[in-house]
Simulated scan of single mutants.
Amino acid sequence: MKDCSIKGAIKYFIASSGAFCVLFGAWLSHGAAFLNTGQQQSLITALNYQFIHTLALLSVYVWYNLAPQKSLKITLLLFTAGILLFCGSIYLKTLTEFSMLGKLAPIGGMTLAVAWISLVFQRQKS
Results as ranks from 00 to 15, higher is better:
I90L: 06
K93C: 10
G102T: 01
G88H: 06
I44H: 14
I107H: 08
L119W: 05
G82Y: 04
I14F: 06
A19D: 06
W116K: 07
A105P: 07
H53D: 14
W27Y: 14
L35N: 04
Y61P: 04
F86V: 01
A46Q: 06
T94N: 02
T45C: 06
G8R: 00
K103D: 10
G82W: 04
M100I: 15
S59Q: 09
A67Y: 13
A26T: 09
S118I: 10
G108M: 10
I90Q: 04
L28C: 03
T111F: 07
A33L: 02
M110K: 08
T80L: 11
S89F: 00
C21K: 05
L28E: 03
A33R: 11
L28G: 02
F79N: 05
I14A: 07
F24M: 00
I107P: 04
S71Y: 12
C87R: 07
I83C: 00
I90T: 06
H53V: 14
Y61M: 08
V120C: 15
G108K: 09
F24C: 03
L119H: 08
T54Q: 13
L84R: 10
Y61H: 08
K70D: 14
L58E: 12
S42R: 09
L28R: 01
M110V: 13
L72V: 12
G25T: 02
I10C: 01
K2F: 08
L119S: 11
T96V: 01
Q39R: 04
H30P: 05
S17H: 02
Q122M: 14
K93W: 10
Q122L: 15
W63Y: 15
Q124S: 15
L47I: 11
G38F: 07
L43H: 05
S89G: 00
Q41G: 12
G88C: 06
G88I: 05
A115F: 04
C87M: 04
G82K: 08
T80G: 11
G25M: 02
G82V: 06
T54V: 14
V60T: 12
W116H: 06
G8I: 05
I107C: 07
M110I: 13
T111M: 06
Y91D: 03
L43Y: 07
G18D: 01
A15Q: 07
L23N: 10
T37W: 04
M110Q: 09
G109W: 09
V60M: 13
I44T: 13
K70V: 15
I6W: 02
V114M: 07
I10S: 01
V22E: 00
A56H: 12
A46L: 02
F24W: 00
L47Q: 13
F51V: 14
R123H: 15
M1I: 04
L66V: 12
E97C: 12
K7A: 07
S42C: 06
N48D: 14
M100Q: 13
R123G: 13
T45W: 08
K73E: 14
